[in-house]
Computed example of a mutant assay.
Amino acid sequence: MNIRKIIFLLALAISFPSISQEIAPSQTFWDTLKSHCGNAYEGSLALPEEDKDFGGKKLVMHFRACSDNEIRIPFYVGDDKSRTWILTKMNDIITLKHDHRHEDGTEDEINFYGGTASNVGKADLQFFPADTQTQKMIPAAATNVWWITIDDKIFTYNLKRIGTERIFKVVMDLTKTIEKPEAPWGWKE
């Protein structure tokens, strides 16, 4: 190759920098979640308006542990510290699982149910249809779809059982942090 060609190719490379690879929407979603790591937030029940287990209780989420491939978010309902949402990411696909514990830290009989996104979703929204493990564990939940939304002001955790009236929505206020709660039941550092 002659010197003119080399100079021409170098000039082209400088003039037209390579186009960076597009970031998957699920990675943007993940990075947004991780930006809250260590913070705790309070929220409220949006649906159903009348719920005996969640209605009128203080709802708190704590982005307690974050790594490149796992985010653990304990979710407190009043004095009940039994729930942790576990999100994992592999090959730009996110999975949501629910870890339920008793006060002594032992696993609940119904534990680690959830689903895996069927695609990379959107930067502010990820869907998790019930997986086979969930269907076997909770047959009525075979048509469950969970979804999480996040932007700079709110985080929502949602559930719809397709074909039924079952719907659930919690809205967490991300505009102000609150004091970090104690560890959830069964938490291991």
Rank of each mutant, 00 (worst) to 15 (best):
E109W: 11
E109Y: 01
E109K: 13
I110L: 12
I110F: 11
I110C: 12
I110W: 04
I110K: 09
I110G: 02
I110T: 10
I110A: 10
N111M: 07
N111D: 11
N111I: 09
F112R: 14
F112P: 15
F112E: 12
Y113D: 07
Y113R: 05
Y113F: 11
Y113V: 11
Y113G: 07
Y113E: 02
Y113A: 00
Y113N: 02
G114R: 09
G114D: 05
G114S: 11
G114F: 07
G115T: 07
G115L: 01
T116R: 15
T116M: 12
T116D: 13
A117S: 15
A117H: 05
A117C: 06
A117W: 02
S118V: 15
S118I: 15
S118T: 15
S118R: 14
S118D: 13
N119E: 13
N119W: 05
V120E: 15
V120C: 06
V120R: 09
V120N: 08
V120S: 14
V120P: 08
V120W: 04
G121M: 00
G121V: 11
G121F: 04
G121A: 03
G121W: 06
G121N: 04
G121P: 00
K122Q: 09
K122W: 13
K122Y: 04
K122R: 08
K122D: 10
K122I: 06
A123L: 02
A123Q: 00
A123E: 08
D124K: 08
D124L: 10
L125I: 10
L125F: 07
L125A: 10
Q126R: 07
Q126N: 11
Q126T: 09
Q126D: 04
F127Q: 09
F127E: 13
F127K: 03
F127I: 06
F128Y: 01
F128E: 00
F128G: 02
F128S: 01
P129D: 00
P129S: 00
A130M: 00
A130I: 03
D131K: 13
D131I: 06
D131G: 05
D131E: 10
D131F: 07
T132M: 14
T132G: 06
T132K: 05
T132R: 10
Q133I: 01
Q133F: 13
Q133H: 08
Q133N: 12
T134P: 05
T134N: 03
T134R: 01
T134I: 04
T134C: 01
T134A: 08
Q135G: 07
Q135E: 09
Q135Y: 02
Q135F: 06
Q135H: 10
K136F: 11
K136G: 04
K136V: 09
K136D: 13
K136Q: 06
K136S: 06
M137V: 10
M137C: 03
M137H: 09
M137E: 06
M137Q: 06
I138V: 14
I138F: 04
I138R: 12
I138Y: 03
P139T: 08
P139Q: 03
P139K: 05
P139S: 09
P139M: 07
P139I: 08
A140S: 14
A140D: 11
A141Q: 10
A141D: 10
A141G: 07
A141F: 02
A141T: 02
A141M: 12
